[in-house]
């Protein structure tokens, strides 16, 4: 690779680097420093998006796409999903329990970064830039054949590694299933029959009332109404704070235009005239 073949890095790329680089760094630092895990995840998304752009700039448009779609899209969503499952408020306390851990980690980190950075800077000062135009140039531009170039190598020289990676993914999926499965002793799982019997033995055999969605509001936080006009507390899922809504207009009856009951009544006069038309409106 003679220096003649070197591709000169353009000013545009330098601009991109100097804009996105600090952004990515800020994202990384933000991830480490945020107390809230969800914020950390969002900071990380910032960094990963920046990196994706870097990939594209560095003649790897396919990987850039993968980075944004798979990493930022799928994997980070998985992180958030687990965070929600585990509870987003399980954030770190400020107090470091291991004595000297933070100081040591910071000092070591600075030292490591200084050593490796200095070493890399020294070693790669005159790193030639051959560029990938020679292998992946296509009709649409210098990087248009990137996918083809990757595929050509992936399915020839790296075929075995590719197959093994596939196997690894299968194993990972099965492994995740195995880890998350809750072991139950045989026979301890109750069937529909047992569940029904157990429910009928309580003083509430029927289902819980539904929330007031569609009936009175557009949110699941709106509780269902009881026939006496009270609020059915049971109609809300646990953990949802009930939302105050306007009480339903009373005595409007089916004559009121625009009400669903009126519409239904107009279609079929034999229909029951229970207000709300719901089965769960019974007194407890």
């Amino acid at each position: 690779m003679t220096p003649d073949a070197a591709v000169v890095i353009g000013t545009g790329e330098a601009v991109v680097f100097w804009i996105l680089g600090p952004l990515a760094l800020a994202g990384a630092l933000g991830m480490v420093l945020s107390r809230n895990a969800v914020h950390s995840a969002l900071w990380l998304v910032l960094t990963m998006l920046s990196l994706g752009v870097f990939y594209v700039v560095q003649s790897a448009p396919f990987l850039g796409a993968v980075q944004i779609i798979v990493y930022t899209g799928a994997i980070m969503i998985l992180f958030l999903f687990v965070l929600m499952l585990v509870g987003r408020d399980s954030s770190d306390s400020v107090v470091e329990t291991l004595r000297g851990q933070r100081v040591a980690a910071t000092l070591l980190g600075i030292g490591f970064a200084a050593l490796v950075g200095a070493g890399i800077a020294r070693a790669t000062q005159d790193l030639p830039v051959v560029g990938l135009a020679g292998v992946q140039a296509g009709p649409g531009g210098p990087d248009a054949g990137n996918v083809e170039a990757i595929a050509a190598l992936l399915y020839t020289r790296y075929l075995l590694a590719f197959e093994v990676t596939g196997a690894l993914l299968i194993v990972a999926a099965v492994g995740a299933l195995v880890f998350t499965q809750v072991e139950r002793a045989p026979g301890s799982r109750s069937g529909q029959k047992e569940l029904s019997r157990a429910r009928f033995l309580t003083d509430r055999p029927q289902t819980l009332p539904g929330p007031g969605v569609y009936a009175r509001a557009t949110s699941v936080a709106a509780p269902g109404m009881l026939p006496d006009g009270g609020i059915a507390e049971d109609s809300l899922a646990t953990g949802i704070e009930p939302q105050r809504v306007e009480p339903a207009p009373r005595g409007a009856g089916r004559h009121q235009l625009g009400s669903p009951d009126a519409a239904l009544g107009a279609l079929d006069p034999t229909v029951s005239d229970t207000p709300g038309g719901r089965e769960g409106g019974e007194h407890r």
Binding site: L98, Q101, A104, A105, L108, G109, G111, F112, L115, V116, A118, G119
Partner: peptide
């Protein structure tokens, strides 16, 4: 504490990097 072990690993990495350099 896994983090203590990891600290040791990072220390080792620093030493290796320094030695290499």
């Amino acid at each position: 504490f896994v983090r203590t072990y990891a600290l040791g690993m990072l220390g080792g990495a620093v030493v290796v990097a320094g030695a290499l350099l």
